[in-house]
Every structure is written in C-alpha cells, then in structure tokens.
Write a protein that binds this DNA or RNA. Sequence first.
DNA 1: ATCGCTTTTTACCAAATGGTAAATGTTTTC
DNA 2: GAAAACATTTACCATTTGGTAAAAAGCGAT
Lengths: 189, 189
Amino acid sequence: MEKLIEYILQFGNLNPQQINFIKSKTTEVDLKKDDYFSEAGKVPKYIGFVLEGVFRCCYYNNKGEEITHYFIDEYSFVSDQQKFEAQALSSEYIQAVTDCKLLAFTKKDWDALSNTIVDWDRIAAKITQKCLSDAMDRRSPLVSEDATTRYLSFLQKYPMLINRVPLSYIASYLGITQQSLSRIRKNIR
Amino acid sequence: MEKLIEYILQFGNLNPQQINFIKSKTTEVDLKKDDYFSEAGKVPKYIGFVLEGVFRCCYYNNKGEEITHYFIDEYSFVSDQQKFEAQALSSEYIQAVTDCKLLAFTKKDWDALSNTIVDWDRIAAKITQKCLSDAMDRRSPLVSEDATTRYLSFLQKYPMLINRVPLSYIASYLGITQQSLSRIRKNIR
DNA sequence: ATCGCTTTTTACCAAATGGTAAATGTTTTC
DNA sequence: GAAAACATTTACCATTTGGTAAAAAGCGAT
C-alpha cells in the first residue's frame, strides 16, 4: 500500500486525510497466471497498481497475429487508461503473465477521488502521462534498431523480466519471430 | 488563433476572460525550412501550437544515425514537453521540415497561465497526455509490421505528409533505409 | 537553358530475418 | 515416474532488407 502512496505523491502533495481516503477506495485484486485484467471488446473495470507480478498488453493485428506491445511489472499502474476514463470498449487485452496482486480502483471509486480531492484530476492526468511517456520511451527505439540491438536493450531495460516472461512474448514485443530471437540468443553467447 | 482555442477547449471549459488571457500570452513564431524549433543539449524555449507547416522530431542513436521519431503538422502542439516543463536539457531536435508558423508560449508565459487559470494544470496535463497518446498510437504499430505494411499505414495515417516531407525522413521514421523505401514504392505501383 | 546541388531510384551482392518443420528441453498432470 | 502439453532451439531454404555505388530525376540560381 505504501508503494502506491509513494507513487502518487510524486505528482502532488496530499494530506493524511486525503491519503486515507485513497487507501479506503482501493480493492485488492489477485489474478492467476494467464487471467485477463481487461479484455478487448469490454469496458475496463479497473485501473490497477501492480504490487506483484507481470502483465503484458497485447492486441491482434490485421494478420491475426497476437502482438505484445508492452509489459508492466511491479509498482506501476496498469490499465487502458483512455478507455477506462471514458468507460469505452477496449481494443486490447491486458493479461497476467505470472500470478499477480494489484491494488485496483473501480471507475466509481476513481471518480470519487476526483470529486473529493481537489487536485486529483491533475494528479491522475500526470499518472497517465507518466505511463504513456514510459511506454513511448521503451517502444520507440524498437523501430529503428536491428533485432540484436533491440534484444540487448530489452535486457538492459528489463533485466528482471527475462526470467519471468515466455520468450515468445518477448519476441513478439521486439517485433521478431521466436526463431529469430532464439538464434540471436545463441549468437550472443 | 481560433484553432488553438478550439484545441484547448477540448479539455476543459474556459470563460472569455480566460481565453483572452491565453491569447495575450502567445508569441507568433515563424521558422524557415530546416530551422530548429528546439535542439538537443539545450533547454526548450517554447511550447508551440502549429498553425502552418510540418515539424519532425529526431535524435541520434548510438550508431550516430539520425532517427526521425515523429512528425507533427497543423493544429497540434509541438515541444519536448517533459523537458520544457522541467526546463531541462532536451535530448532531441525538433526541426521545421517546411516553412512553419506557430503560436508559441515561453516558459514564463506558460507558467502565468498556470498561476492565473485555476484549471490550467489539469488542462496542460491533458494536452501532454493527448500528444503522447497520439505519438504512441502512430509509433507502436511500426514495431511489429513488415516494411511494406508500415509504409502503407503511414500513407493512410498521414496522407498529406507524403508530399511535404523528404523520403529520407519518412524512411528513417519507418525504421528502414531510403533504398528499401524506394524499392517498396516501386513494387506497390 | 545550363550548371551545380540535392533527392530519389536502380542495381548488385551480402547479411538478416521469416516460415515451415522437426528435435530437444521443460513443466504440468495424473 | 510416465505421459502429455507446452516452450525453446535448431535446421533448412525463401524472402526481405541493408550497404555500397552509381545513375537518373528534380530543383534553384544564374
């Protein structure tokens, strides 16, 4: 719980009362490996803060291939924020890659924060901003590098993920086939 | 000027007085083709709203290659927002690809908006959020598609840009060489 | 129109990646 | 512990892309 508060306090000051109010609105959610946190074609129920585990966000491209477009692990928010805010149908899946534990907010509770904490909308926008900006920083370099460079920078940026995530997801994230990734791993040694 | 106001009003309501205040803080900036709006290693002077022209944002990767990582055209904000906000050194270049006209805000004027318009911080955060989210939507699909598909979806998403931007920039944006892009164009016809 | 400069296309070959299929390794289940 | 299911590696060849170099096309200034 303290990790969540710490995360939020990056973006603005809150008094103890406000902090308690936030705490009171959280729902603890546990998910088993492979469970969906949110699904394409459905309205996202929650925005969640990851206490334990790894999620991946993926969608199906026009060739029907499943593309992992980012991973989220401990102490970050996970959600299709735009669709959660608007309570609109999501176009992606967010799936637990390992067993996961989250502190989650329903839309109702999230709105309660907005209505109760004066500065909350700004803070919430900042949170979304950080999530997007992190995602962009990770994703963007993948476009212009060759596969080996992508894999190496993946290793640097997510040293812990390599042992927690199936290689096929990583290959998909890097935009290469699993066979290519396997070959690259062999050549690096 | 009305385009700017229209853009801002997407994110919150403002009274005529507040709108006039915003207008009073704008600086009109004209840039010639190839001029820099902001540079790596320098603190961004402005955040700008593009009235006319096309910008590209680029950086140099570790191989010394110049990578265009996004384009911005009319009626969007352009700036290295994170670095502008923090008045920190930017790590990228923002360059006019054509002659450009902007409505710009200095940090001082931008802060004045924050201090004068109660809801401004939230609105500003929403603007940044939109810029990032648009950039992500454009950039992300590039990772997992082959070069031809990337080019075709570029054409769909930016039909106007193809005639305003040198092909070498587009190739760099798509993560391929100029020769590959040329070959792809030939095969499509 | 011509020259000089930049942009785009072409050609060639080398290298990287994809697709199919099978073999090996690992984990789960009973 | 064996069988089944799943994950990863390997091998093969076809296809795509990169790198180098040169030709063609486009553009601006005189």
